[in-house]
Design a protein around this nucleic acid. Sequence first.
DNA 1: TGTCAACACGAAACCGTTTTCGTAAGGTTT
DNA 2: AAACCTTACGAAAACGGTTTCGTGTTGACA
Lengths: 343, 343
Amino acid sequence: MKAKITLKDIAKELEVSTSTVSKALNDSNEISIELREKIKAFADFYHYRPNMTALKLRNKKTMIIGVIIPEIVHHFFSEIISGIEKMANGRNYNVMVCVSSESYEKEKLNLAMLSNGSVDGVLVSIAKETLELGNYDHFKELEDYNIPLVLFDRVSNEVNCDKIVVDDEGAGYKATNYLMDIGRKRICILSTPDHVNVGALRSLGYKKAIEERGGEVDDRLLFRVNDKTDLYLQIQTYLNSLEVWPDAIIGVNEIFAAIAMKVAKEKKYKIPEDVAIIGFTDGLISQFSTPAMSTIVQHGFMMGEQATAMLLDRIQKKEPDMNYDYKVISTDLKIRESTEKIE
Amino acid sequence: MKAKITLKDIAKELEVSTSTVSKALNDSNEISIELREKIKAFADFYHYRPNMTALKLRNKKTMIIGVIIPEIVHHFFSEIISGIEKMANGRNYNVMVCVSSESYEKEKLNLAMLSNGSVDGVLVSIAKETLELGNYDHFKELEDYNIPLVLFDRVSNEVNCDKIVVDDEGAGYKATNYLMDIGRKRICILSTPDHVNVGALRSLGYKKAIEERGGEVDDRLLFRVNDKTDLYLQIQTYLNSLEVWPDAIIGVNEIFAAIAMKVAKEKKYKIPEDVAIIGFTDGLISQFSTPAMSTIVQHGFMMGEQATAMLLDRIQKKEPDMNYDYKVISTDLKIRESTEKIE
DNA sequence: TGTCAACACGAAACCGTTTTCGTAAGGTTT
DNA sequence: AAACCTTACGAAAACGGTTTCGTGTTGACA
């Protein structure tokens, strides 16, 4: 239970000044080689390690970035955190993780906590509730304190900062086009309420693809799933309310697609013969479902890495720069059994 | 781009001393009410917020706990992090997350980084490589610096500290017993190499259950999946190498079970009629597979919460206490379609 | 032998707080 | 009127480092 040893302790023990010890340990040639070695040996012996907090105070840098994420138990988000952690670590930063649980209040609290100087920069994916409320005042605080911010995935153009998003519109477009390519006519999309930009954009791409081929968008085939009540029931009820079942379904996330698959199986529809299904987020469900699910892969890990790179670049920039980046990560369509072409 | 305002700035502006400002803002009655109000108003106007780093230095507490976890993109672990974050936040602590990626070296590095005074305590789930190597010297450093440590899920009794684990043996026992209850005779278990304690313990429970009923453990039915090569291939090859297929399979994690299900379906075995399957970790795969998978639910969230509570309790304990806790969290068996009883 | 640079180290300021202690001014006791 | 308490504030130390600057001792050069 030895208390941690400080510079002062070493100085006293060796009867030199703390400045000498500091310089010696930092290999300054202001100190003679013999003394340097002696001090180093002593420090080593007692496992001296500089107090990080003291360093942070002096350097005015914490070497920590904060992350506020709507939830962690979520394949896409956990991939992002993974990417963040890797990039941050590679550049000698640490990561402080906060969860908003999709709540505006928690997001605000977290932001306040992080903006008090605990971190050098913040990465945020906006909570659904915040998006719904449309209130982004809590982000101003960061600006006041001059703490760099990067929004990822769930962004808002009411906040001035760097942003990085998945090419959601392109992904919706890509998925829809592919389904039409394999001959599907009644393509249904299970989306989110419009304030969740990712859902809205994916729907937009969906519409665009259909219209581009001269088709007409049937609004009854676009269902906005409300995530406040039972998902299964909503989707089941919706699908069965259609006079004619779709021959293809796009779920804007893994779960919607998995539920659609389950409902289809219950109705004894064959997948992909009767109905093709595509999901988003290439998580475990997609890989291990039967049939294996075709998905839009969103490269969450890469997004985490790049968001962090953007943030660190901005942190390390000396003078503030009002030109904010907007980066779009394109998606890939991973075709598996749930959409195999009908010949 | 205003620089953050400090106590000193306020003091200078108001022509009082910094101590007066500090006291006023902390509502000390050493300062007259009028001056107090004046200073508070001023501070408020300029959005004064105390510099956390300075406070940390003075108080010798960072209010941060470090977490080293083998991976994040993993249902069980992300649940744990979620629980950690919640409990920590509720007790005014922040969470720094580090990923070992199952690597001994990264774990060591992370530990060294955290033990330099950045955090008040550390939560670790040991990397597989470390377990395999059996080298736990890097944990000594924490002891040297007197930084509390709690090991969770993947623990080692070579490290002296509080520990919290899932009742893995009981879980294996419970699953096996249940399968025998519904009449299964050839129960196979897909486990991990023995150095991964969770796998070893689950296998132990499996054996115990069988022996308790006077059965004999058939070693051919216990397969240790090596996670360094293709999982699917290994499990497929193993299962098909058996002269007689099992009528029940226990996968010690979600993925092993999902793969087993997939292999069984390919062989046109009916689930659960021909073969019942039970997995661990009640994640998305289990919920959305067809048939829905029976699982052992491990309460990861709760484990995260409790591990954090143990850690914080120890941090807040004034005098060191060599009596370490060992807490076991019991599991539940969630029965779904993959094991429904044959009547 | 006086001047000056190089060497090797210490003193002190600094980062931004809190907190202990000291003290001047005024009021209350006796 | 002397002694003592409050009240209301400031000075300074402390947390644990880094860094600038100053300075005493050498040795070299003129």
